[in-house]
Design a protein around this nucleic acid. Structure first.
Lengths: 221, 221
DNA sequence: TCATATTTTTAGACTAATCTAAATTATTTT
DNA sequence: AAAATAATTTAGATTAGTCTAAAAATATGA
């Protein structure tokens, strides 16, 4: 197989590719892996040699089908372990990322198949991100964000755009967990902040920045 | 923390120490890790530097308290993952060792605490080996082996001495899994092989070699 | 005890992944 | 379009873990 490091590079490149159509550049990879551009360059040569990426000096990188398959499998493992950690071991959703980061590399495909079955074939992880199936197919995640919601309507939280621990902990503290339902009471004209009501009648004001990072579906859908 | 390699060396030294009182020699460590004596010597220096072992050139190795604590924690993780794999994911007991070998290194102590709780604080792994608790305390494993059983008596299987995949698969095929009860029908004088009866009335003849590697407790105890 | 065999250690080299600093290429600005 | 700036790559070194082959120490045994 591949080394853990190679897997981490492929995963980073895969995630960065998803955000933009252009090739991924060296420094953004270095940024997301907290390493230097020089180290990235070295690794890119190695990955290109193995046909896992297409790489042209000074021109950035695209992931190949072969590389993408590996990356998606890592993402699949990561997200299934996240479900296990929250659902079975009762961790909070803001605690599981770093543990899943370790577990994603160690597990045989057979182990993951059994885990998926045990968990009941979940389609989304605790942050609302879709879990690729065995063949690499990925359901469309919710694309509706709370910021584009309308007054007086109800929405069910399904996920987040910002996966940072600080954002997740903010949501956790305010009670905005995936699965809960909110109603929009008011939207302020000047800063687009909104007043929302939770199930337990608690009212909460959230900034537009926050609302843009919360994914929802229409209540009852 | 320590590298995965260091952890594997400590675990190997710990297990080899358990079998004999004398210091562990270089070549037996090399043997159990499938590496060369030269590599072992290099690593022993490093571990001694960190006070995880006591090492004197040409004289072999003893594990220190500090090193033993780490080794026991790895063993604890390994055995809890084995319980998870058999109990929760329904793997056979002869399949779980190599998966647990990977999982034992990745898991944070908090994850393992939760896993232990989820599994119901099991005291033994699927092979009958005791699971160290959080403080490193280890229950005494069964020391009675089937070979020293008496005619007409019933015994419950609790574990094995030989952990090789081939032995475990032999037991699996013949139905001799931990937890089941057997009755000794006959013991042959000349080779000490024994005829035993399983719950479902199936009669089975096993060699003394096999009987010596099966751990039991008296039925009903 | 002295020679032989075995075990262990050292010496020197290799690979994977990383780094800093210097050189090169690309991009932006004037 | 040349100069300045930014990004990327190369060069050379480092660390962890490993190896083979040679040297040194220990154990065996006639």
């Amino acid at each position: 197989m591949h080394t853990e490091t190679e897997e981490n590079y492929l995963k980073a490149i895969y995630h960065l590719s998803a955000k933009r159509a252009e090739p991924v550049n060296t420094s953004s990879i270095a940024g997301s892996l907290s390493t230097t551009s020089a180290s990235v360059t070295d690794m890119l040569k190695k990955l290109a040699e193995k046909n896992l990426i297409e790489y042209e000096r000074y021109r950035g990188v695209r992931i190949t089908r072969k590389g993408e398959k590996i990356a998606i499998n890592i993402v699949r493992k990561h997200r299934l372990w996240e479900v296990f950690l929250t659902q079975t071991l009762k961790f909070r959703w803001d605690e599981v990322h770093s543990m899943a980061e370790e577990l994603e590399h160690v597990s045989s495909d057979e182990l993951i198949k059994r885990l998926e079955e045990y968990l009941g074939f979940p389609r989304f992880d605790p942050h609302g991100d879709p879990i690729p199936d065995l063949t690499g197919k990925i359901s469309a995640p919710s694309s509706l964000c709370l910021a584009s919601g309308e007054c007086e309507k109800r929405y069910t939280l399904t996920g987040v755009n910002d996966h940072s621990v600080s954002f997740l902990q903010y949501l956790e503290r305010t009670g905005l967990k995936p699965g809960i339902t909110v109603r929009i009471l008011e939207i302020q004209e000047y800063d687009h902040s909104m007043l929302i009501e939770l199930k337990n009648k608690i009212k909460l004001s959230i900034s537009n920045d926050v609302a843009k990072n919360i994914l929802v579906k229409n209540y009852g859908e």
